[in-house]
Design a protein around this nucleic acid. Structure first.
Length: 454
RNA sequence: GUGGAUGUAGCUCAGUUGGUUAGAGCACUGGUUUGUGGUACCAGGGGUCGUGGGUUCAAGCCCCAUCUUCCACCCCA
C-alpha cells in the first residue's frame, strides 16, 4: 500500500457536517458582533516576524511558526554562523515572516497603519485562524479559529461592560452554560506592590488557586517555601480567604492594598464594571477570581476568561484591557479592550453536550432520481424552478440503479426524493417521497414547490 | 521543554503463555429485488501487523532503536 497521506500534527480537516456545525457557531457569533455595532476586518495569515516577536512573552516567541525566506535563504548566512548552530540567531537571518499567533497584535498593527482612516473609538471584529507551535492535546490545536471583538481608542469601562454583554448573549444563543471569570491587572500589581515583591505575584496567584484543595495552612507553608516573607503572608490572609459576592471580595482586597494607588485604581475599575452589570439581566455567572492572571503580557486592566460549566476543556473565551499595545508600533496613548472566542473549543464543548440543532446539515433538501434521458429532460426545468425558489436541490447525475440512488440520498441526509418516471410524466406530476416517514405523494410542479418550502 | 501511553483493512478495534494460509463490525463492489433508501441474507475486493534491527526452529505478540498519534504538566482559545 502506498504511504498514507496525512496532515500536520495539531491540524484538522473539516468535513461537510462539521463545517455546517462550525458555521452555526460562526454565524451566531457574527450576528451578535454585528448587533453590537462591530465591523469586520481581516489581516494576512502571515505577518513580519518583527511585528510578532516579543509581544507574547518568552513562551510566545517559541510558539511562533516561522516561515523560511523564499529563494536561497542561506545566501546571507556565512559558514561560521552555520557551524555555531545558534538557532535563535540564525532564525532572524533565514526567516522574516511568521504565521499569526493571535488576532490582537495584528489588529494593533493594523490600527497604527490605518490610524488616519479609522473612526475612533474603532469597533472591529475578526474571525480567522491563528497558529501556535504548541504540543497538541485535548482541546489544543496548532491551527484554530479565534473570533475577536475589540474596541480601541476609548478608556471607558462601558466597553468592558459591552464585551461582557456580548459574551452573555453569545453563550445564551448557543445554549451553553458558562462562568465568566474576571480579574484586574492593576489589582494584581497592587498586591505585589503591597507586599513589596512584584515578581512573587505569580506564586501568590498559584497559592490562592490551591486554597480549595489544600487549605490555608498548607498554602501559607508553600508561600513561605517560595520565599514570600512571613510579614507579607500575614498581610495576605484576607485575600487568601476571600469569600462572599464580588463586591464583598473587592472590599476585602481593598483593606489589604489600600496604600497602593494602582491597586485602588483597579478596585475602582472593577466596582464600576460590577455596578453597570448589576442593572443588566445577565444569565452567565460573573465571578471575581484573583487567580486569573493571563499570560499575555500586554494586558493592563480588566482581564476575562470564560469556562464551560459542563465540560472541562480550559477557557473557551479570553481577553482584557490593553492600554498601550499600539505604542510598540509607534502610536502611544491608545487604549483598547477586546475578547476572543475560541471557536474550536466551543465546537468541542457543544459536541460533547450535543447542543447543535438537529437541522444543521448542509445537504440538499430534495434530490431527483435519474431514470434516463427522457426523464431527465422532464425534471431539469422543475429542478431549475425549485432553485429559483431558493430550495436547495440536486439531480442524481447518472441513471444508476434505484437502490444506489436512494442510498445516496439517504446517506447524505437528503430529506426528500423526487421521482418522475414514465407514468408521472404522462400525468404531468412528480412523486415526492419523504425519506424520514417513507410517505409518498403525487404532486404538480407548483404543489411541489409549496410542499418543499413549507 | 518534562513525563506517560499508542500504532493490526478506508474507519473502530479483537488477536490467548510466541505455533501453520491474520479476524470482526462499519464502509466499499456485486447479487437475492431491472421503480424505492434507512431494517434482512449471500458473495467479493482490500493488510509486507508504523519503520529498522535483534532473540528464536518459529514474532502481530519478546528486546532495542526510531518515527507517528494521543494524554498529563507548563502555557493557552
Amino acid at each position: 500500500m502506498a504511504q498514507k497521506p496525512s496532515i500536520p500534527k495539531g491540524t484538522r480537516d473539516f468535513s461537510p457536517n462539521e463545517m455546517a456545525r462550525r458555521n452555526y457557531i460562526f454565524d451566531t457569533v457574527k450576528r451578535v458582533f454585528q448587533i453590537y455595532g462591530f465591523q469586520q476586518i481581516e489581516t494576512p495569515a502571515m505577518e513580519n516576524l518583527s511585528t510578532l516577536m516579543g509581544k507574547y512573552g518568552e513562551e510566545g516567541d517559541k510558539l511562533l511558526f516561522k516561515i523560511l525566506n523564499s529563494g536561497d535563504y542561506l545566501s546571507g548566512v556565512d559558514s561560521t554562523e552555520l557551524i555555531q548552530q545558534n538557532s535563535q540567531k540564525l532564525t532572524t537571518k533565514i526567516s522574516e515572516k511568521g504565521l499569526r499567533y493571535d488576532l490582537t497584535v495584528p489588529f494593533a498593527r493594523y490600527v497604527v497603519q490605518y490610524q488616519n482612516d479609522l473612526v475612533f473609538p474603532f469597533r472591529r471584529y475578526q474571525i480567522q485562524p491563528v497558529w501556535r507551535a504548541d504540543r497538541p492535546q485535548k482541546g489544543r490545536y496548532r491551527e484554530f479559529y479565534q473570533c475577536d471583538v475589540d474596541i480601541i481608542g476609548s478608556h471607558s469601562l462601558l466597553n468592558e461592560v459591552e464585551l461582557i454583554q456580548i459574551v452573555d448573549q453569545i453563550y445564551r444563543n448557543l445554549g451553553l452554560r458558562v462562568i465568566l471569570k474576571m480579574n484586574n491587572r492593576k489589582i494584581l500589581a497592587g498586591i505585589a506592590e503591597t507586599i513589596g515583591e512584584a515578581d512573587r505575584i505569580i506564586d501568590i496567584t498559584v497559592a490562592i488557586d490551591k486554597m480549595d484543595k489544600i487549605g490555608i495552612d498548607k498554602v501559607n507553608e508553600e508561600l513561605l517555601l517560595r520565599g514570600v516573607s512571613s510579614e507579607a503572608i500575614l498581610k495576605l490572609q484576607p485575600i487568601l480567604n476571600l469569600s462572599g459576592d464580588n463586591i464583598g471580595k473587592l472590599s476585602q482586597i481593598e483593606q489589604v492594598i489600600a496604600n497602593s494607588a494602582i491597586g485602588m485604581k483597579g478596585i475602582d475599575e472593577m466596582r464600576t464594571i460590577f455596578r453597570y452589570l448589576a442593572s443588566m439581566n445577565l444569565e452567565s455567572e460573573i465571578q471575581l477570581d484573583l487567580t486569573l492572571a493571563r499570560g499575555l503580557n500586554y494586558y493592563t486592566g480588566a482581564i476575562f476568561e470564560v469556562k464551560s460549566k459542563d465540560v472541562s476543556i480550559g477557557s473557551i473565551t479570553g481577553g482584557g484591557r490593553y492600554d498601550d499595545l499600539t505604542g510598540i508600533f509607534g502610536l502611544p496613548g491608545v487604549s483598547g479592550v477586546g475578547i476572543s472566542f475560541g471557536a474550536d473549543r466551543i465546537y468541542d464543548v457543544m459536541s460533547q453536550l450535543d447542543l447543535f440543532p438537529k437541522d444543521t446539515i448542509s445537504a440538499a433538501r430534495v434530490m431527483f432520481v435519474n431514470f434516463g434521458d427522457k426523464e431527465e429532460k422532464y425534471c431539469l426545468p422543475i429542478l431549475a424552478a425549485l432553485r429559483r425558489e431558493g430550495i436547495s436541490s440536486e439531480i442524481y447525475p447518472d441513471p444508476d440503479k434505484m437502490k444506489k440512488q436512494m442510498n445516496y440520498a439517504n446517506r447524505k441526509g437528503i430529506k426528500f426524493v423526487a421521482l418522475a418516471g414514465e407514468s408521472e410524466i404522462q400525468e404531468g406530476m412528480i412523486n415526492l417521497k419523504n425519506m424520514e416517514s417513507g410517505e409518498q405523494q403525487l404532486l404538480s410542479a407548483m404543489d411541489l414547490v409549496a410542499t418543499l418550502k413549507g
